[in-house]
């Protein structure tokens, strides 16, 4: 087990290295120059003397050959230094420390919220197959998967923010500052992040349960005279969760993807919003750090998922 984890982590390092490599070179292959954008933003292009501009290029190491730039970046990374943001002119590690908790707060809440109802709803739909509940669940889950996030976001804002005035439309408050207000701010973004997840999970869960329910060992369980609850909880649930776990591994990635849209619409100061701004500004340093952190999180969560398989399915061995 331990050797398995170590091996996976080593592989993870290789993947992360590949990610850094690809991101690093691809963003530099794109036309455009982050310093130019930065200077243009400040309308400094024609006020700053050439030497000063050159000095800026030197400060960011952008005057060096690209391979040297890469080596410098990796070397600094290994020392724990993510670099200096070009637009923010601040250490990216510091920026990420501001942003990551926000995205995790919203994203993880969305993740958990999508998990429990998704599983429950899918389970109920499967157990009451072809009943009206099943039909409603099917319709809603198709809707949930098909509906674009921004569309859902605006419907929610319109209904709950504008018409009913139950929830604040945009913004973010830290839960440590004002938990209740923070939660109110969180509701709509979390619904947007989690609804596709609920729908996908419910659908997956439904078909998974249906498949498991027709397994021989479930018939065995029924033949023991167990009540429906016992059959479902002991014999069906755990088995049908196995394919769901795979799905969850992927959903972590979706959360970061979805945060880009959701954070912009609801004006949430997370990684997604930072990423959008940084892409517009071609802030290499921030984009690289962003990709790096996402890669690490996704690799770790996939490892976690794979390990949790072992708990759900004793047939899986780690060696």
């Amino acid at each position: 087990m331990l050797s398995y984890i170590v091996r996976r982590l080593l592989w993870g390092l290789v993947i992360i290295w590949l990610v850094t490599l690809i991101v690093f070179f691809v963003i530099r292959l794109l036309p455009g120059d982050p310093l130019l954008i930065y200077l243009a933003q400040n309308q400094d292009i024609n006020s700053m003397p050439r030497e000063q501009i050159d000095a800026l290029y030197r400060e960011y190491g952008l005057d060096k050959p690209i391979l040297v730039q890469y080596a410098n970046w990796v070397f600094n990374l290994l020392r724990g230094d993510l670099g200096l943001s070009i637009t923010y002119r601040q250490n990216v590690g510091k920026l990420m420390l501001e942003r990551l908790p926000v995205t995790l707060h919203v994203g993880m809440t969305g993740f958990i919220v999508s998990l429990v109802p998704g599983v429950l709803v899918g389970l109920i739909a499967a157990m009451r197959r072809a009943s009206w509940i099943d039909n409603v669940v099917t319709i809603i889950s198709y809707t949930g998967i098909a509906i674009p996030v921004f569309w859902l976001a605006y419907i929610l804002i319109y209904v709950f923010g504008l018409r009913l005035k139950w929830l604040p439309i945009a913004g973010y408050v830290s839960p440590f500052e004002d938990f209740w207000l923070s939660t109110k701010h969180l509701i709509m973004p979390v619904i947007c992040i989690s609804l596709p997840g609920i729908a996908a999970t419910a659908r997956q869960m439904r078909s998974s349960v249906l498949e498991i329910a027709s397994q021989d060992y479930v018939r065995t369980a029924w033949s023991k005279g167990l009540a429906e609850k016992a059959v479902v909880c002991r014999h069906i649930l755990k088995n049908s969760l196995i394919p769901i776990i795979t799905l969850l591994g992927m959903r972590i990635g979706f959360i970061f993807g979805g945060s880009v849209i959701v954070e912009n619409i609801f004006a949430i100061p997370g990684m997604g919003r930072l990423l959008v701004g940084s892409i517009f500004a071609q802030d290499y340093v921030v984009i690289q750090a962003n990709a790096l952190i996402m890669a690490v999180i996704i690799i770790l969560s996939n490892l976690l998922v794979d390990i949790s398989y072992g708990w759900f399915d004793p047939r899986i061995r780690y060696d």
Binding site: D216, Y217, R219, S223, K224, G225, A227, R234, H235, P314
Partner: peptide, 25 residues
């Protein structure tokens, strides 16, 4: 009543030993 009979009064063994036991229990 039926559940009391099932497994209690009348028990059944199925034809596929490989799949008739729950793999995760």
């Amino acid at each position: 009543e039926m559940r009391a009979i099932r497994g209690g009064k009348i028990a059944m063994i199925f034809q596929e030993p490989m799949t008739s036991l729950n793999p995760v229990l």
